[in-house]
């Protein structure tokens, strides 16, 4: 009989790495999403082009290819990253590109009359964005951001292939050591699902908070 407690501990350690990757990756993705999403709406053609190239590039290839490129090719350019850094960088940049389109769509979905009212009230461009447009655009972004965060969580499994000891990697270790396949893989599938459910529950809560006080404004 196999003593499972040690192996379960191993998988839970992996779960911590997975969560760390998800949180750090989401933070980077959020920054990139706003930078590139607002960049695409910029007045300056250079900024717009840069943002478009970034978005198309990262949406055009998969997270897997990007991760391998970051991990295996960047060292030749003199930039050596630990697997964790490579994972966060690739995940954040990849999901950020998807998020950027969400930001752009949500900002553009805020009605024209709102912008006109801002001009009439003599708000600066920054004030307009900060106090009028974004508070209305944010609730539109949140559901899709939730989906993107879940995509990012699922993407973290790929980092096991560059030897980062996340949950999937640990499951493979357990498989190699015990010869049992069902228990490790079923366990991590359930754990991934629990994490994904936690993300969507958290997003629903955030959505309720963000829409507070917006009744009657939204169609």
């Amino acid at each position: 009989m196999i003593d499972w407690s040690g192996y379960i501990g191993l998988i839970l350690q992996g779960a911590l790495v997975t969560m760390e990757l998800t949180v750090l990756g989401s933070a980077l993705a959020l920054i990139m999403a706003f930078a590139a999403g607002l960049g695409r709406l910029s007045r300056f053609a250079v900024v717009r082009t840069l943002a478009t190239v970034y978005i198309e590039f990262f949406r055009g290839t998969s997270i897997f290819v990007q991760l391998f490129w970051v991990y295996f090719v960047l060292p030749f350019a003199g930039l050596t990253l630990t697997p964790m850094q490579a994972g966060v960088l690739a995940l954040g940049l990849n999901v950020g590109a998807y998020g950027a389109e969400v930001v752009r769509g949500a900002v553009r979905a805020v009605g024209r009359e709102q912008r006109e009212a801002c001009v009439a009230l003599n708000l600066s461009r920054y004030q307009r964005m900060r106090h009028v447009i974004l508070p209305q655009a944010l609730p539109l972004m949140l559901p899709t951001f939730g989906n993107n965060a879940i995509e990012l969580l699922k993407g973290t499994a790929v980092v096991s292939l560059i030897s980062l000891t996340d949950m999937t990697f640990q499951a493979q270790v357990v498989r190699a050591q015990t010869g049992n396949t069902l228990i490790p893989f079923a366990t991590i599938l359930v754990l991934y699902f629990v994490m994904a459910s936690a993300i969507s529950a958290g997003m629903r809560w955030l959505e309720r908070r963000a829409t507070r006080g917006l009744d009657g404004v939204r169609a």
Binding site: K154, T156, V158, T181, A186, L189, Y192
Partner: peptide
């Protein structure tokens, strides 16, 4: 469907490839 969509494709592939032969 929710379960499949909430878990990584990579792990599902491992599951099909390593567990089903058992």
């Amino acid at each position: 469907a929710d379960f499949i969509r909430g878990t990584p494709l990579l792990v599902q592939l491992y599951f099909i490839f390593y567990v089903l032969p058992d």
